[in-house]
Amino acid sequence: MTTIDIRLAEEGDFFGWLPLFEAYCRFYETELDDRKALTVWTWLQDEQHPLRAALAVDAEGTPVGLAHFRAVPDTLSATTGVYLDDLYVTEEVRGSGAGRALIEFVHARSAELGQGGVSWITAADNEPAQALYDRIARRTSWVTYEMDA
């Protein structure tokens, strides 16, 4: 059994975080260039920016998963919850509980902020991830819309 610990990303984690973020972008067929990677990393390290990162690390301390998340107000419940922007676990540790542990870590952060919960979206064809999500969360009936810049 793989031992996985979850912790917030720290300043020295860039080179452990980067391959995970690259793989996440590749999975969603999105190009990651140096500018974009450095921008996101800068956000993660800026205490004034809402985006945070949790890392799943193996027994050797190597990052094997990531979760990007941010606090969001929920006007309908007058609470603050958390939006889980990105979740990725390397293929080698999938099925080990690392994805679930990352989501639970983010959920614990939402409890620290108030009574809000955690919400996220995933691609309709990401069925392996949905198998986990369906076990630990409630699938909603909301429909997502996007407008390009």
Rank of each mutant, 00 (worst) to 15 (best):
V89T: 10
A124S: 15
F105E: 02
R70W: 07
D46E: 08
A78M: 12
A67Y: 01
T39G: 07
A56R: 06
R139S: 11
S96F: 14
R70T: 02
R70K: 08
R100D: 06
Q45H: 02
E92H: 12
R70D: 01
S110Q: 03
L87S: 02
S110A: 14
G95Y: 11
R52G: 00
G81C: 09
P63N: 02
R138S: 11
Y133Q: 09
A124E: 15
A108S: 11
A59V: 14
V93S: 01
I121Y: 09
P128K: 13
S96N: 12
D85H: 08
S77T: 14
Y133S: 10
V93N: 08
T62N: 09
R139W: 12
T80H: 12
T140A: 04
V93D: 04
A78E: 10
R139V: 15
A98N: 02
E112Q: 15
L38D: 10
T140P: 01
T140H: 02
V89A: 10
D86M: 03
V118T: 05
V57C: 05
T62H: 07
Q48I: 05
L87N: 03
A71N: 03
L84Q: 04
V93W: 13
L55N: 02
R52A: 02
L132I: 12
I103T: 08
L76A: 10
L66D: 00
W43E: 08
V118R: 06
V64S: 01
D86E: 09
R109C: 04
I103Y: 06
W41S: 01
D134Q: 15
V57I: 07
L102E: 01
D134C: 14
R135N: 09
T79S: 14
A131K: 15
L44W: 00
T42Y: 04
A54K: 00
P128E: 11
S119L: 06
R135P: 04
E146C: 11
G116R: 08
E127W: 09
V143T: 15
P63Q: 00
A71D: 07
G95Q: 09
E47R: 12
F105W: 06
A59Y: 05
E47S: 12
W43L: 00
A56H: 06
R135F: 06
I121G: 09
A59E: 15
G116H: 06
A56G: 10
A53D: 01
Y88C: 04
T42G: 14
D46C: 04
V82T: 03
S119N: 11
V64G: 02
E104Q: 13
A108L: 07
R100K: 14
A78T: 08
P63I: 03
I121S: 12
W142T: 07
W43I: 00
E47C: 03
A53S: 04
T42L: 04
A101E: 13
T79P: 05
A56I: 03
S77N: 02
A111C: 13
A98V: 06
R135M: 08
R100C: 06
E146G: 11
E104T: 11
L76F: 09
T140V: 05
Y83T: 04
P63T: 02
V143M: 12
G99P: 05
D46S: 10
L132W: 11
H68S: 00
A53L: 02
S141V: 08
L102K: 05
L38K: 12
T39K: 14
T39D: 13
T122V: 11
P50I: 08
A37H: 01
L76K: 00
T42V: 03
V143H: 13
W120P: 08
